[in-house]
Design a protein around this nucleic acid. Structure first.
Lengths: 157, 157
DNA sequence: TTCAAATCATTCTATATATGAATGATTCAT
DNA sequence: ATGAATCATTCATATATAGAATGATTTGAA
């Protein structure tokens, strides 16, 4: 039987992951805030760079965001000059979202911020421990069907 | 220099932690949903059991929730019969929040759900790997100043 | 060819939550 | 005894999100 002498409940690994994940997400949000973007913006930026001339619908389904919310997010980013809406020549129902020069620059800054965030967050661990943690997390993520590079924190709860 | 041949960006460990943490939080929320409670309720339940006769103010500051929101949460839980407001005899400004029998029962069910959640979420890993992951997470959590058993996901962002 | 169904972006409405100020009762310190 | 502080509460406001409804366009079948 588990040791529960009085009321001292040692949290399990899943709870620790929740704590750490929330903390990591918050710190990343703080890192990119000076760039004028939020985590959803960052996800869009990455995806638009990976899939050029992508419709809003595809972005929405890939990121798990509702189309109606995507409209607002794209509005914001277009207003900042990070990307442009371009009517598709073949299907005039949808847009092709394209990165501007400023958008590409912001993406590069965002990736630098992500790298620095990663380094800082894992700094309490030795390089060997960092590698071990990463391997274990990759194994877990694979088994839980998490999409490469897209975190499920954009939709519902 | 890091290998970035084309556009394939391998996510760092911090990003993996964000993904896993979000996923773990969501699954836990689904687990306790049949009990009629949400994650904030679960946090309150745990804390009230650990600190009996606790004021709403203490709960709010410990959990990082605004007092005005705490009122609503306690209202909901009292409405479900999980806890009672009892005027403090020594200081009639504040309440002492006490668990009811049903509240204690729900807490026990919640802890069972948490244990099952932990087992299921980590099932892709061997027992040794699970222990390693837990140790590394504990080390990280300690260095990042995370409170025992209280995750920072209840406030702002 | 034509017409119904599907698709994309958008707008609108409703709900939940975050935030902070203000209120009233009570206690504390001088 | 009086003013400051504390606790629970209410209020007003802002923001995020879900989901339904709309209009333009394309697609597919009769």
């Amino acid at each position: 039987m588990p040791p529960s002498s009085s009321e001292s409940r040692a949290p399990g690994a899943a709870f620790l992951l929740t704590q750490l994940g929330t903390q990591a997400a918050r710190r990343f949000a703080e890192r990119i805030e000076p760039l004028g973007i939020t985590p959803p913006h960052a996800g869009i930026l990455r995806l638009v760079a990976m899939i050029p001339d992508c419709s809003q619908q595809k972005l929405a389904t890939r990121l798990g965001i509702l189309p109606s919310r995507m409209v607002v997010l794209i509005d914001e980013m277009a207003g900042q000059g990070l990307l442009d809406r371009r009517r598709s020549a073949t299907d005039r129902r949808n847009y092709e979202i394209v990165l501007t020069d400023k958008g590409a620059e912001t993406l590069a800054n965002m990736q630098r911020a992500a790298a620095a965030h990663d380094t800082d967050f894992l700094t309490p661990l030795t390089p060997e421990e960092q590698q071990t943690l990463k391997s274990l997390c990759e194994k877990l993520a694979a088994h839980h069907g998490l999409a490469q590079g897209v975190h499920p924190g954009y939709k519902h709860l």
